[in-house]
Amino acid sequence: MFRRFIRGLKYKFIVLMRNKGASTVIARSFAIGMFVEFITLPTMGLAFLLLFPLIRFTRSLFSVSLIGFATGKLLIPLFLVFNYKVGEFFVHTGVGNETALQTASFFSWEAFKEKGLAFLTGSGVNGIWVALIFYAVVYWAIGAYRKRKENRRQERSLAIPEQTS
């Protein structure tokens, strides 16, 4: 099963690299998919619906955005606690007595608003910087892949001797 998973990842990577289009469009599409994945969990899956207008507005590629969205699923478990801590840093509403909030029901509306807002904010902030990092990585990887492909093509054309009649 693990080999099949790795094989699927390699296939998606090849699809991403061979995609026809400008490197900026492909990298932008991947970054949009990654960002939307980061804010999907705090919005309980509704952020996926945000993917369609974002793709249309930025003139991106849907297939590449889905690859970024799926890749984000592998990355998001590493960021769960960090997303909350970053959001708590930015939001820090200070609803009142901290111990009173902890002793209250975890599923109360006040606790849900405070913790949910912190998690959404942290996920958005981290999603933005992770998307920017992946934009640069994908842009560089596509450029390197295309340059290597062009070099191989030139080497093959030089290796084939011309036939004279």
Rank of each mutant, 00 (worst) to 15 (best):
G8R: 11
G8V: 05
L9N: 12
L9P: 11
K10W: 13
Y11H: 14
F13K: 06
I14F: 04
L16S: 03
M17F: 08
M17P: 08
M17H: 05
R18G: 08
R18D: 11
N19Q: 15
N19R: 14
K20N: 11
K20M: 09
G21T: 08
G21D: 06
A22T: 09
S23A: 09
T24Y: 04
V25T: 14
I26W: 02
I26S: 05
A27N: 09
A27C: 11
A27V: 12
R28K: 15
S29A: 08
S29W: 00
F30A: 04
F30D: 02
I32D: 03
G33Q: 04
M34Y: 07
F35G: 03
F35H: 03
V36R: 00
E37F: 06
F38K: 02
I39S: 04
T40M: 10
T40D: 06
L41Q: 10
P42H: 00
T43A: 14
M44P: 08
G45V: 01
G45L: 07
L46V: 09
L46S: 15
A47S: 13
F48E: 02
F48R: 01
L49E: 03
L49R: 01
L49V: 11
L50I: 07
L50M: 14
L51N: 12
L51E: 04
L51V: 08
L54W: 00
L54Y: 06
L54G: 05
L54K: 00
L54P: 00
F57L: 15
T58P: 06
T58K: 07
R59I: 01
S60P: 03
F62G: 01
S65H: 02
S65I: 05
L66G: 01
L66Q: 07
L66W: 06
I67L: 04
I67P: 03
F69P: 00
F69A: 01
F69Y: 13
A70Y: 07
A70K: 03
T71Q: 02
T71H: 06
G72L: 03
G72R: 04
G72N: 02
L74V: 05
L74D: 04
L74H: 02
L75I: 15
L75R: 01
L75T: 10
L75Q: 04
P77R: 14
L78F: 15
F79Y: 13
F82I: 08
Y84N: 01
Y84D: 00
K85D: 04
V86K: 00
V86R: 01
V86A: 02
G87H: 05
G87C: 06
E88S: 09
F89Y: 12
F90P: 01
F90G: 04
F90Q: 02
H92G: 10
H92R: 14
V95I: 13
V95D: 11
N97T: 04
N97Q: 11
E98W: 12
T99K: 10
T99I: 13
A100V: 13
L101I: 07
L101G: 14
T103L: 15
T103H: 10
A104R: 07
A104S: 14
S108A: 12
F112P: 07
F112A: 10
E114D: 15
G116A: 08
L117P: 03
A118V: 07
T121D: 14
G122Y: 03
G122E: 01
S123W: 00
S123I: 06
G124R: 01
V125M: 13
V125E: 11
N126R: 01
I128E: 07
I128P: 05
W129F: 15
W129A: 11
V130F: 12
V130R: 00
A131C: 11
